[in-house]
Computed example of a mutant assay.
Amino acid sequence: MTWHLLTTNKWPFHIQVRQLRHAIKNIDMIHVRDKEASLQRLKQQIDQLRKIGVNRERIILNEHADAAIAWDLGGVHLPGHSSWKGKDIKEKAPGLQVGASVHSQDEAVTREEEGVDYLYYGHVFSSESKPDTPPRGLEALQAVVQSVSVPVMAIGGITRDRIAEVSQTGAAGIALISGFWEAERPEEEASYFNHFGQINYETT
């Protein structure tokens, strides 16, 4: 299993960078998501990540495909409402990894047909970011995994005590927000998730 860490709006970015400094070696991809930020501010955030040693190919930018291409990042992630299609982005930047968020099997199949490389599906468990929306659960996650051939990553309420059952659905990985940022020792959480992913990969 691979895992992505999404940035959060709960704390100033410089505080997030401080937490990341000792955890980045155990994080596969860092997904910069700040829906309120200008492109200038997003570029500043990416520059801060670069200064602590995060390679460009390990940075995913949310939504802004043209900026991800211009800044030579590793990927772009499309929110559910995005009108971008994976194949259109690939025409501009064949090497760019393109992901998309989906919330049903139909959306997953459509996004796969549009040429994305991977999907986020959720929220799987109760999530602080969506307190008024019921979680979709593990059975729904498994159904989505089985409906497409591209990797599906679980998001929403993922914690270390839930990661084993998530892996049993066939999900290719997880995407974390509060599971990392709310932890008492985030760098230990990063080490745990990375270690679990290696074991899971080696035994499947």
Rank of each mutant, 00 (worst) to 15 (best):
P79Y: 11
G75I: 00
G137L: 01
I69W: 00
H14F: 11
A140M: 13
T203Q: 02
N200Y: 06
N9S: 14
R41S: 14
T133L: 08
H123M: 02
A190Y: 01
G157C: 11
G197H: 00
P151R: 11
T7V: 11
G86V: 05
N9I: 15
I174R: 06
T204Q: 07
I199D: 04
Q168P: 12
H103S: 08
M153Y: 15
L176N: 00
R136E: 06
Q146A: 05
S82V: 04
A100E: 12
W84E: 15
I199T: 10
R18H: 13
M1H: 06
V152T: 03
H195L: 10
T2N: 10
T133G: 08
I158C: 08
H31S: 04
E57S: 12
E114V: 05
S191Y: 14
I89Q: 03
E63K: 12
R21G: 10
A67I: 09
E107D: 11
L6Q: 01
L20Q: 04
Y201Q: 15
S191E: 14
S149G: 11
A140L: 12
A190T: 05
S83P: 05
L96I: 13
E63P: 07
M29H: 15
K51P: 05
L138N: 02
Q16W: 00
G75W: 01
A154E: 00
H81V: 13
R111H: 09
P134H: 14
F193Q: 05
L61M: 03
T159H: 15
L49S: 03
S178G: 06
G197T: 04
K90M: 05
T169R: 01
L96R: 10
P134V: 10
A93K: 07
G53Y: 03
D34V: 08
H31C: 07
A68W: 00
F196H: 04
I199C: 07
R56F: 09
Q45C: 15
T2L: 12
K43R: 13
L61S: 02
L49W: 04
P134S: 10
T7D: 04
L96M: 07
D106Y: 13
P131K: 08
L39D: 15
L5F: 09
Q16V: 00
Q198I: 13
H22T: 13
L138C: 05
K51Q: 12
G95S: 08
E57G: 06
S191G: 12
Y121V: 00
T204R: 15
A154D: 00
H195A: 15
P131A: 11
G53W: 01
T169Y: 03
Q97S: 14
M1I: 02
R185W: 13
A164G: 09
I89N: 07
V76E: 03
G173S: 02
M1D: 01
N9H: 15
I27P: 01
Q44M: 10
H4Y: 13
I89W: 03
G197V: 03
E139T: 14
